[in-house]
Simulated scan of single mutants.
Amino acid sequence: MNLWQAEAALKEHNIHFQPGLNEDLTATATWGAQNLGLFPGARVEGVFSIWYGKALGMDRSMDPLRHANLAGTNPKGGTLLLVGDDYGAKSSTLV
Rank of each mutant, 00 (worst) to 15 (best):
M1R: 06
N2P: 05
L3V: 02
W4V: 03
W4M: 07
Q5V: 03
Q5N: 13
A6Q: 14
A6Y: 02
E7D: 13
E7T: 11
E7P: 00
E7V: 09
A8N: 06
A8R: 13
A9R: 11
K11W: 00
K11I: 05
K11M: 07
K11Q: 13
E12Y: 00
E12V: 02
E12D: 12
H13C: 03
H13N: 13
I15L: 07
H16Y: 05
H16T: 12
F17P: 06
F17S: 04
Q18G: 00
Q18P: 00
Q18S: 09
P19D: 00
L21F: 11
L21N: 11
N22G: 08
N22T: 03
N22P: 04
E23D: 10
D24Q: 13
D24E: 13
D24V: 12
T26E: 04
T26D: 02
A27K: 01
T28Q: 11
A29N: 06
A29D: 07
T30R: 08
G32T: 05
A33V: 01
A33M: 05
A33S: 15
Q34G: 14
L36S: 05
G37S: 15
G37L: 12
G37F: 04
L38W: 15
L38C: 11
F39I: 14
F39K: 12
A42L: 08
E45C: 06
G46Y: 05
G46I: 04
V47S: 06
V47Q: 10
V47P: 00
V47C: 07
F48C: 08
S49N: 12
S49D: 06
S49Q: 02
S49Y: 02
W51H: 02
W51T: 01
W51I: 00
W51M: 02
Y52V: 10
Y52L: 14
G53F: 03
G53C: 12
G53W: 03
G53E: 04
K54T: 14
A55M: 06
G57A: 04
G57M: 02
M58W: 01
M58R: 13
R60G: 02
S61K: 05
S61Y: 07
S61G: 01
M62K: 14
M62G: 01
M62E: 07
L65H: 01
R66E: 05
R66K: 09
R66I: 08
R66C: 04
R66Y: 09
R66M: 10
A68Y: 03
N69M: 08
N69H: 14
N69F: 12
A71Q: 10
T73P: 02
N74P: 03
N74Q: 08
K76A: 06
G77S: 07
G78A: 06
L81P: 00
L81S: 04
L81T: 14
L81M: 08
L82C: 15
V83T: 11
G84I: 01
G84C: 06
D85H: 11
D86P: 09
Y87L: 11
G88E: 12
G88K: 13
A89G: 01
K90P: 03
K90E: 14
T93Q: 14
L94C: 10
V95T: 15
